[in-house]
Design a protein around this nucleic acid. Structure first.
Lengths: 111, 111
DNA sequence: CGTTCATATGAATATCTATTCATATGTTAG
DNA sequence: CTAACATATGAATAGATATTCATATGAACG
């Protein structure tokens, strides 16, 4: 019993990712943990959009959207390209779709 | 061009989940957005553990772990059972594994 | 029943973060 | 070069949240 208990603890300790990896992982999920950013990512699922289009779409200020886009870009979840004065943002990673989908599945199962 | 733009906006508006669903989704990801909770979930991947075992494993106080376990339980990510004085926690949802795995894939691709 | 052990919980605090406001950067048109 | 427009960004603020501390609950055991 006691042996079994320590056995599990040792196995868990062994399988546990490094703190650095866990920080990276939680930082990634933090990004998905905000409705504004989720909405932005959803918007970009259909195709690239400029900052002002996203702002109009979500009914938020250009500044707020710009700040959030920077966070998404730093996380390499979105990229952008310039066309004259306007800057278009687009999703960089197919995993965005998958991560969100997994989240939904939990919500559905939860009822 | 202008037509095309509005076209996209309308499509996006149409595909956007309700605010309630987006809040539920961001609340779920918020839970994954914390290293302590990630560590707890990782620990429970191997099997059920009592509160004090988790606390010992993570080198944190019983109180801190208990607070976090409550959050995980409210989100229906873990369940618990009592055996005498000790209470064992376990993962409730296979999606935990999948969600974490998706997160990792993004990190790896990010290089 | 009273003590001990495992866990839960409320309040307080310190830290983090999303938005706002003001302003800066950078591009195009005239 | 200057005005107008799109976007970025720094500082400040308000709200959220993880941990701590003190204490409560609840079970087992003598």
């Amino acid at each position: 019993m006691e042996h079994n208990h320590n056995d599990i603890l040792n196995r868990v300790r062994h399988e546990m990712p490094t703190d650095e990896l866990l920080c990276d992982l939680s930082d990634l999920f933090k990004i998905f943990g905000d409705t504004t950013r989720l909405k932005i990512m959803y918007s970009l699922l259909e195709g690239e959009l400029c900052v002002c289009a996203v702002a109009e779409l979500l009914g938020m200020t250009q500044s707020a959207i710009s700040h959030q886009l920077k966070i998404l870009k730093d996380a390499k979840l979105v990229g952008n390209r310039r066309d004259g004065k306007t800057i278009y943002y687009f999703l960089l990673d197919e995993h965005v779709r998958d991560i969100v989908a997994e989240g939904f599945e939990h919500l559905l199962e939860e009822r």
